[in-house]
């Protein structure tokens, strides 16, 4: 209970700060949609503090690339410290790291894949979950952006899953076996081939939707926060008394969504890889 209280006392000022941040975009005489997108879309400038002029990133590094690098840096620090301090009775960071590992293992990988195969895949899905989760949640810190709100990042992640689906399927079942697996039993040749083609394209659609889901959730979440705040400039400055609490509420919802989308992405990719590589009836 005390932890929850501390969490809220910590997160609400951050939420207010984050919510009030885009207001500074209004100084520059931009249109409403430009103001909204300026705080979500990728750019070459790193604007970390409101009154200091933005930092130009060198070598064509964009802001989302910076965020990706920062998030893997943070994850590696967390894991290095956690593993170093891990002992028989873990406390603090070590306990947190262990909770994440156990969550991925017991709630995603082992129930879907079984213990024997899951042991090999655990590291992959763990790194996928922690990567997406950190990239999601880093965008909720004021002045930072979610790289998962960019469709290039999510489609890159979905492409990994897509390639792995086929690679593992071909490896486990063989090239003809893979198609035989999606061929419906007891169907005529015309319908069977049709279903096989449909299922085959289903893999593409699943992967596209996988990337779109994460992208749309993160993008729409940030857009919702910002839209509430922009109402302040469109209608009346005193509308802020209504719109800022709504923005804070949406922000808190975003914390949940950041976790849930990382979970769903990991779970779905786990299921896709499993379904393509398991013979029917097992």
């Amino acid at each position: 209970m005390r932890l929850l209280l501390r969490f809220f006392t910590m997160i609400i000022p951050i939420a207010f700060l984050s919510a009030s941040f885009p207001a500074f975009g209004a100084e520059e005489n931009l249109s409403i949609s430009e103001t909204l997108f300026k705080d979500i879309l990728n750019s070459n400038e790193l604007k970390l503090f409101p009154f200091i002029p933005p930092l130009k990133l060198p070598f064509g590094v964009s802001e989302h690339m910076f965020m990706l690098g920062l998030s893997i840096f943070l994850i590696l620090i967390l894991f290095f410290r956690g593993v170093k301090k891990h002992s028989f009775k873990p406390r603090g960071i070590a306990n947190f790291v262990e909770i994440i590992v156990l969550f991925i293992r017991d709630d995603i990988v082992y129930p879907v894949m079984g213990e024997k195969r899951g042991r090999h895949w655990l590291t992959f899905f763990l790194s996928m979950f922690i990567f997406i989760f950190t990239v999601n949640i880093i965008g909720l810190i004021p002045a930072f952006k979610s790289a998962t709100g960019n469709i290039s990042v999510t489609s890159a992640m979905a492409l990994i899953v897509f390639i792995l689906t086929f690679a593992v399927g071909f490896k486990e079942l063989g090239f003809p076996g893979f198609f035989k697996n999606i061929y419906p039993k007891g169907a005529g040749p015309v319908i069977g081939v049709f279903v096989v083609i449909l299922e085959f394209f289903g893999y593409f659609i699943k992967s596209i939707v996988l990337s779109l889901r994460l992208f749309a959730n993160m993008f729409a979440g940030h857009l919702a926060i910002l839209s509430f705040l922009v109402l302040m400039f469109v209608i009346n400055p005193f509308f802020g008394f209504i719109s800022v609490p709504f923005a804070v509420f949406t922000y808190l919802l975003e914390v949940l969504i950041a976790f849930l989308q990382a979970f769903v992405f990991t779970l779905l990719s786990c299921i896709f890889i499993m379904m393509a590589s398991t013979p029917e009836g097992e």
């Binding site: 690339m65 893997i72 593993v83 891990h86 262990e98 590291t123 763990l126 790194s127 996928m128 960019n150």
Partner: peptide
Amino acid sequence: DPGLAIWTWISFGILFFILWKYLLPPL
């Protein structure tokens, strides 16, 4: 943006490699 996609793969690869090679086995 292909550059960003490649950057995503690189960072994910680094993370996966370090976790797989150094961090998870002792844990």
